[in-house]
Structure formats: C-alpha cells, structure tokens
C-alpha cells in the first residue's frame, strides 16, 4: 500500500500534540523476550485460518477450478468451501479438512493445525501461514509472487501422509 498521504492542518497538530504531552507511546513486543520467539506466539487461530482459507482458494485457482468443482471433487457443499475461504471465524468440520487434504494430496495434520482443529505442533507452521497469507492477494489469476508463495507454502506443509 503506497501513496498514503497525511493532510491535516497545522492547528490539528497543535491540538493533538497538546493531548499527547509527555506520554510514552511504545507498542509491540515487551522486553526480555526474543522477538523471534514472540513472533510465533503472536499468531492467533484466526490468522492461521485466514492462511488456510487463502490456501484453499489459491489451490483451486492454480488448477483453474471454481469453488463448485472443488466441492464436487471433495464431496463437500460449495457453501462450505466458500465459507472456509472467506470467513476465518468459521471453524471447519474436521471431516471437511480430511476430504480437502485428500484432494490436495497432503497430510491432513498441518491442515488441521491451520484450521485450528488441533493444537499446533509443526515447527514454524503458524509463522509460515501468516507470511503466506500476507503475500497472497485475492485476484483472478495467480501472479508470479503468489505462485512463488503458494509453492513455498505447499513445500512447508508437505510431509508424508
């Protein structure tokens, strides 16, 4: 996101800075803890579900499939696929995740972790998920960067079924 421009009058700063006074303003990671460790704990179930939904959407787009085609192949409802892709607050049924894993040719465990259905144990999976979601945009076709992110993420979650 570029070209963001602040255009407030000088008077606004005068008033607002008076309110700030000598207050401290820091926000983020507290001291005494390695930032790398914290980055992992900052990732929430919602964040990984966003990655899960993005992954499902990109997987079918990579094949040129619409949601109905994926639903038919996985023996799920189209609405369920769309809900997984678009609503990170929705908890998918474990059965649906198993069916999707079978279609994707992946072990269900990392997908169940991403969906927030089992406790995360795969090293760095949650960080990878957030990076993946952040690098993927909802456009019609996969661009090179999305494809690169998609393939890297498939590699990260691939393990013997």
């Amino acid at each position: 996101m570029k070209n963001m421009k602040l255009d407030y009058p000088k008077k606004w700063y005068e008033n607002r800075i008076a309110l700030e006074g000598d207050a401290e303003i820091g926000a983020g990671t507290p001291p005494g803890i390695q930032a790398k460790t914290l980055a992992k704990s900052n990732v929430t179930r919602i964040d990984t579900r966003i990655a899960f939904g993005t992954f499902v959407a990109l997987w079918r787009r990579n094949r040129g499939w619409d949601a109905a085609k994926l639903a038919e192949t996985a023996e799920l409802d189209t609405e369920e696929i769309l809900e997984i892709e678009r609503d990170p607050h929705c908890e998918p049924e474990p059965d649906a995740v198993y069916k999707l894993a079978r279609v994707f040719g992946l072990s269900p465990k990392p997908l169940l972790e991403l969906a927030g259905l089992i406790e995360p144990t795969t090293p760095r999976l949650r960080e990878e998920a957030v990076r993946f979601a952040a690098r993927s945009e909802s456009v019609a076709a996969l661009n090179d960067r999305e494809r690169e992110a998609f393939e890297a993420f498939v590699s990260a979650i691939s393990e013997p079924a």
């Binding site: 996101m1 963001m4 421009k5 602040l6 407030y8 607002r16 800075i17 006074g21 207050a23």
Partner: peptide, 15 residues
C-alpha cells in the same frame, strides 16, 4: 520533540 505518537497513530488511521 513531542508529537511522534500522534503522527504515528494518525498514519495508522489514515492507512
């Protein structure tokens, strides 16, 4: 200087 917090919050809101 004072006002860095104000400017940064304004930037986040504007974004």
């Amino acid at each position: 200087y004072r006002g860095v917090g104000t400017v940064m919050v304004a930037a986040a809101v504007e974004l």
